[in-house]
Amino acid sequence: METILKVEGLKTYYFTSTGVVKAVDGVNFTMQRGESLGIAGESGCGKSTLAYSLMNLVPPPGKIVDGSIILDGMDIAKMDEDSLRNEVRWKKVAMVFQGAMNALTPVYKIGKQLAEPLVIHGNISEDEAIEKAKEILPKVGLDPNIINRYPHELSGGMKQRVMIAMALIMNPDIVIADEPTTALDVIVQAQILNLLKKLKWEMGINLILISHDLSIMAEVVDRLIIMYAGKIVEIGNSEDVFGKPNHPYTQGLLNSIPKLGTHELNYIPGLPPDLRNPPKGCRFADRCPYVMDICRREEPPMFEVGNGHYSYCWLNR
């Protein structure tokens, strides 16, 4: 297997007026070519910040303060803005942003918006770029003639398809989809997930899917990272994480998913910690049903709990 992305010791902090928010605080993982990777966690766990970090596109007052993101021999974390624009964004790593409804500008036609990354990054004329845009639209299940339409003429699902087409247009190595279906209805969501799968099989895109919804993850990703309060708590192949969850947070999260056919309702008591001042030991300790003394004292290291399956929990000591 070929490693296409290697993230080591990544720290991304937000320097706010009320303190430093450690949104991503020491994250390590690798991604292999051909696999879809999921990053799951609840709001505020740092998953979107991690996604933005992978393009070195963290909005101020956020900043990557430490660590490396190695892609194709380049360290994205340390590149300057010009080389990021010229070499990385859209060409190597592209992103389908959250909230397709608002990500398109209402005043330009779809064709012009789709062509824009090509004109800026690809050094070709707008007419040529629009021709290329027409070629990519059928791949995402859209009629090429919609290049002459405005965003308000499209449904939410169609707009999301346009956003996916835009991410694909420079033929990137990695496509990051940040909550690509949150604002969509369940049927449209199923259609978009089908599309992502097809793109993976037919075009060989390497997908990173960010979502709070583990059911969606199960439908798409091969390998899954669970984040909690700025840290990875568990990482493994989907079968293992869903079948043999090791970390108590993963177990609680899986239990919290309402299922058809059962009438059980479970939740994880308590709240995540304040990331301006995270607790010393394990960040999940306050909500953990199995908490021990050491959990509050020392941060848990990574334990290998299965083949390629890792968990950051002292229970595995």
């Binding site: 259609q191 997930l193 439908e219």
Partner: peptide
Amino acid sequence: KAIPIPDPSMRNKLKDI
């Protein structure tokens, strides 16, 4: 039919819409 199922074993198939 469109409800996502938290079981990764079906992910190599397209969902029936």
